[in-house]
Amino acid sequence: MANKQQKTPEQRRYQQRVNEKMPRSKTLSQCIRAFISGGIICSIGQLVHDIGEKWLMLDEKGVAAFTAIIMVFLGASLTGLGVYDKIGSWSGAGSIVPITGFANSIVSPAMEFKREGFVTGTAAKMFVIAGPVLVYGIGSSVIVGLIYALLRA
């Protein structure tokens, strides 16, 4: 990954100096914010889950799908309204890691590239960030399934 060329001593010295003096992220306060915001989003998810289970009387798979769909809807609408990026700049990973963040990563490029057309812009760019998630997620689930099938045989 890294630069394949040998670093000169000057380069090594400079990079070391940059690393020493660089302003740092405030990791602790960022983690606290991520904890709070992530916790809130998951609690909302729990509420949606309970609504699906107790009010709509969905079965287990139905509840899971219902929760995912509603959370994606919430993430997508907040992105459309221009709120999710503001939540994100406060929350950091707290709003990236939940599935609402996945929805944000789909809607934001879809909106942004509208001007390049609905086929080559919106539709093509929609999965620029979420695509890899699907590739690796679905890919690894197939591998897991195949291993499981092998072990069973």
């Binding site: 798979k61 899971a64 799908a65 219902f66 995912a68 769909i69 994606v72 809807f73 997508a76 609408s77 992105t79 459309g80 309204l81 221009g82 599935i99 996945f102 929805a103 789909i106 809607v107 934001s108 879809a110 909106m111 942004e112 509208k114 609905f118 919106t122 539709a123 929609m126 979420a130 699907l134 997620g137 679905i138 689930s141 197939v142 897991v144 399934g145 195949l146 499981y148 099938a149």
Partner: peptide
């Protein structure tokens, strides 16, 4: 099932992401 199981279980979320993504992209501008 190794090929169909994963996507089947998550179809709701993925389809929602595509539909809402497209819909909101039509309605809103960044």
């Amino acid at each position: 099932g190794a090929f169909t199981g994963g996507i089947t279980a998550t179809a709701g979320g993925i389809a929602a992401a595509i539909v809402f993504g497209y819909l909101f992209a039509m309605i809103f501008t960044p």
